[in-house]
Design a protein around this nucleic acid. Sequence first.
RNA 1: GGCGCAUUCGUCUAGUGGACCAGGACGCUGGCCUCUCACGUCGGUGACACGGGUUCGAAUCCCGUAUGCGCCA
Length: 479
Amino acid sequence: MNNPVRVRFAPSPTGHLHIGNVRTAILNWLFARHSGGAFILRIEDTDVERSTKASEESILEDLRWLTLDWDEGPEKGGAFGPYRQSERLALYQQYAQQLIASRKAYYCFCTESELEAARDNAMAQGGGQVHYSGKCRSLTPAQQAEARAKGIAPAIRFHVPEQAVSFADLVKGELTFPENTFGDFVIIRSGGLPTYNFAAVVDDHLMKISHVIRGDDHVSNTPKQKLLYEAFGWEVPVFCHIPMILGEDRSRLSKRHGATSLDQFAEKGYLPEAIINFLSLLSWSSESGEEILPIARLIQEFSFARINNSAAVFDTTKLNWMNGVYIRKLDPEQLVHRTAPFLRHAGYTLPDSGALKALLVLLQESVEYLEQFVEKTAFFFAERIHLTDGAAIAMSQSEASEKVYWSFLRQLENIEDFTPEVFREIMKTVNKETGVMGKELWMPIRIALTGAMHGPDLPKLAALLGKERVHKMILHIVE
RNA sequence: GGCGCAUUCGUCUAGUGGACCAGGACGCUGGCCUCUCACGUCGGUGACACGGGUUCGAAUCCCGUAUGCGCCA
């Protein structure tokens, strides 16, 4: 009974990966890596209308960006392929036929309008639940032939046995559904395509999935699936339903809550390791209570027992904080490597790597996501500084400032190496020469160099700009 | 409408009958650092949905109500 751990992530290719799906993928992946099992990617593309090849590719891209690697999947292959449901259609037919042969499923010729009428009727009777009547359960071959002759394409329905269904969920505990919770459900639609519940069961069995880890919006699908496993005589996997991620208004996370797809976060410059860490912490917590957990530790500490069972609101503010923590942890090479694309995208011409490194390191602590570097480095890439802030303009034009500027320029002429330490020395001398101190002393210089009244450490900033440029900028502002 | 799941500070959470007048993190807020912002650091704010039980004792167990979410119809 000790099956090897095999888990799967099974998205529908109908767009970019959504935050909720990403979290499901992460948990599956963490469990697989934690237990030395396999992480399988399966594309559920039976909804022909909405599935696109481009979406499938973007999903693979998203997963790669996140650094979640899979052991089997489309493109990659594996022993249990194919890994696209659209390429497994014959399999679903074959297994549906098997259920028909054992009289556990049957053809249903009811049309949509007939079903609707029956439903309305049952509603009018005041009954609580409205299930399929079972009308086609015992059609004779002759009746079936007659219906086919009329051109009606049948669906295949599962004959639901009258029994309560229960299963032990790894997160929710023992769940029981009374008998008659649902009626005979469709497993193959009249068009020949399988329904979600049927395809998932057939695939999970054939792919030897040991643990089904998915969002708890699937809880009510599970009894249906369990019945299918039993009808086939297959071993039932372990189910684990994880709580949903909600928007700020506690409704299901959707587009109107702002950024919800992974690529949007990538574009703003969130780091994959921060996203993984943050999402892991929704509905899960580490035993130690620590929150900044690099991937290796998440893998090590993952445990179903520590998943709680209530939905969590996605809080961008906290994500921003955590992303900032990860940005601050980046070494200079990584910082440049990851940020350069954003700067290039903004149209900046990048300086040599030493200068770029110094520039980014200078701003590193003040950034929450990489895209913010574009604005924060604008002063460095601009031809000239344009003052827009009224207070800054006023300050730069004060009498004290004039004195500071001229004194500073004089000092500048005497020095060779323009380092942060030298800059500090100059400021001291300017102070002595002019008697101006504190804010009145520093602010004018800051404004001349950056155009703003706040920003990074001035000595380092000045050294980075270099003597020539500093000279030019101060000259420009006094004239 | 039926069935299911959930409910601890604004948000993420710890908590599995006594160690909890409920701990941590983000946020907010006050101080320190400081030319400024940020970082860092020290402090503050702030919650067991409600009502009944069970028990010597309940955030923790049971029942009901409310609210939210999900699935099906």
